[in-house]
């Protein structure tokens, strides 16, 4: 008589979904009297994170199928919020120095103050006090509204980014497409382009300050953004044109497209996805470059807000500047993606 062995049970350290959470809590608290936090805080945090992941992965299959997307959204939003809350608590508990790591609530307050208040010392405000536009328009007209824009740090940064981005990206696309189409042009320019491409564009800012009649004006700032955008866009546009499926070029020719029609109906749309990835890179780089430039030489701009408040040691406002920079980056990327969907509807399916 033979017996069938019972199936071996998989080793499951935690039967319930909340057991890992309990373990994480016990571990974190027990580490306290043992004096482990100051020496091995990263080990404890990493372990807590792994246990948290384990708890969430055990929880998800127990939820009804319909609520699981909600659960995943809650995780995506909840975890960053949990991070901010822990930051707040850690600083309040006196573990982290609020001077270097101001708690999120005081960063929020600083952001609010920067937004609503006018900085008399620098003659600026963060977003240019747009709620004053109606009254200023009534009393001073167009010039008053312009003055409000001129005092805005966000407007200063955005106008430099957009100005430089367009001045650089449009010739970038043209030169890149020509390089993609013509082998001789490509051969002649490729080495130069590759060499300048890797150069950090901020390094040529001093040269640009010498070149422009007003070294401290907008000229060199816009120019350094334009140059950064140009090379990124040009190199991607070239790659986009070269990457077009040759059989599509043949099809265009076979059905009678002349040079102009080829460019319009085959080459440009074919290169567009890669051109757009170049534009996305260029936009991100533009923001990096302009913040760096505003550190060095500016009286306005988000980079100036960060650097100025570092100099006067108002770190909560410095962090507020970082938050604004992040918001600008997210907003600009979303804007470009919106344009991308409009321009390339065939990739939307």
């Amino acid at each position: 008589m033979s017996t069938v062995a019972p199936p071996r049970r998989r080793f499951t350290p935690f039967e319930t979904w909340w057991a890992p959470l309990l373990l994480a809590l016990t571990l974190s608290v027990a580490a306290w009297p043992l004096g482990l936090w100051p020496v091995a805080w990263w080990v404890i945090l990493a372990t807590d994170f792994v246990l948290l992941v384990a708890a969430m992965e055990r929880l998800e299959p127990r939820l009804p199928l319909a609520t699981r997307p909600v659960f995943r959204n809650a995780l995506a939003i909840g975890f960053p919020i949990a991070l901010l809350v822990s930051w707040e608590l850690i600083v309040r508990a006196g573990i982290l120095n609020p001077r270097w790591f101001p708690p999120p609530t005081s960063i929020a307050v600083a952001l609010w103050e920067l937004t609503v208040n006018y900085d008399r010392f620098n003659d600026t405000s963060l977003i240019g006090r747009p709620w004053l536009i109606p009254s200023v328009w009534a009393s001073e007209g167009w010039s008053g509204v312009r003055a409000l824009f001129a005092e805005s740090h966000v407007y200063a940064t955005l106008s430099r980014v957009f100005g430089g981005f367009f001045i650089g990206a449009i010739p970038g696309v043209l030169v890149g497409v020509v390089m993609g189409l013509n082998r001789t042009v490509r051969t002649m320019l490729d080495a130069t382009m590759s060499a300048v491409y890797v150069l950090p564009k901020i390094a040529i800012f001093p040269i640009l300050m010498l070149v422009f009649p007003d070294p401290f004006g907008e000229g060199p700032k816009v120019a350094v953004v334009a140059i950064s955008a140009f090379f990124l866009v040009a190199i991607n546009a070239m790659a986009g044109v070269q990457g077009i499926d040759p059989v599509l070029l043949q099809a265009g020719r076979a059905f009678g497209a002349n040079r102009v029609a080829m460019l319009r109906h085959v080459i440009l749309p074919g290169a567009l996805p890669i051109i757009f990835s170049g534009l996305r890179l260029a936009l991100g780089t533009s923001l990096i470059v302009i913040v760096a430039v505003e550190f060095i030489r500016a009286q306005t701009g988000v980079g100036f807000v960060i650097f100025y408040h570092w100099q006067v040691l108002m770190t909560d406002r410095m962090y507020a500047g970082l938050v604004v920079t992040m918001a600008l980056g997210v907003g600009l990327t979303a804007l470009l993606q919106w344009v991308e969907r409009r321009v390339m509807p065939w990739r939307d399916s």
Partner: peptide, 25 residues
């Protein structure tokens, strides 16, 4: 008129625009 092995229809044009392409040219 040519039919290619790898379809060679333009991904950025609708079916209608692809079929009308030669006529447009």
């Amino acid at each position: 008129a040519v039919v290619f092995q790898e379809y060679a229809i333009f991904p950025w044009k609708t079916v209608r625009e692809n079929v009308a392409f030669g006529l447009r040219m």
